[in-house]
């Protein structure tokens, strides 16, 4: 019944990925309280658990992230991006 097991590897915030790396969304940290609306919005834009997301680059001075998800390109404020948890998607020829 534990669905999480389908994601291997440790969870990290989207902001921890390097440019060009792909992550698979595991969850978005947001309580029913303050960030609820933004969680909804992120999911409506395609960032649902299981979705593949590529970090393209980030704006200078810790600015927003440019990502691509489900064929569209989004700009995400850094505060929001930190709440998106992903696991790193490994290439099949990588070490361990």
């Amino acid at each position: 019944m534990e669905r999480r097991t389908k994601f291997e590897g440790s969870e990290l915030p989207l902001t921890a990925l390097r440019n060009g790396e792909t992550g698979i969304v595991t969850s978005i940290k947001a309580g029913r309280g303050e960030c609820w609306g933004f969680k909804r919005r992120l999911m409506d834009m395609g960032l649902t658990p299981g979705a593949e997301v590529v970090v393209v680059k980030s704006a200078p001075f810790l600015g927003p992230l440019e990502v691509t998800v489900r064929g569209s390109r989004l700009a995400l404020g850094r505060g929001m991006a930190e709440r998106i948890l992903v696991v790193r998607k490994k290439g099949c020829l990588r070490e361990n």
């Binding site: 303050e34 933004f38 989004l74 505060g79 929001m80």
Partner: peptide, 12 residues
């Protein structure tokens, strides 16, 4: 209200 955060599509 909620704090602000940018979520915007950069279409082609």
């Amino acid at each position: 209200g909620e704090p602000t955060a940018l979520i915007i599509e950069m279409h082609d």
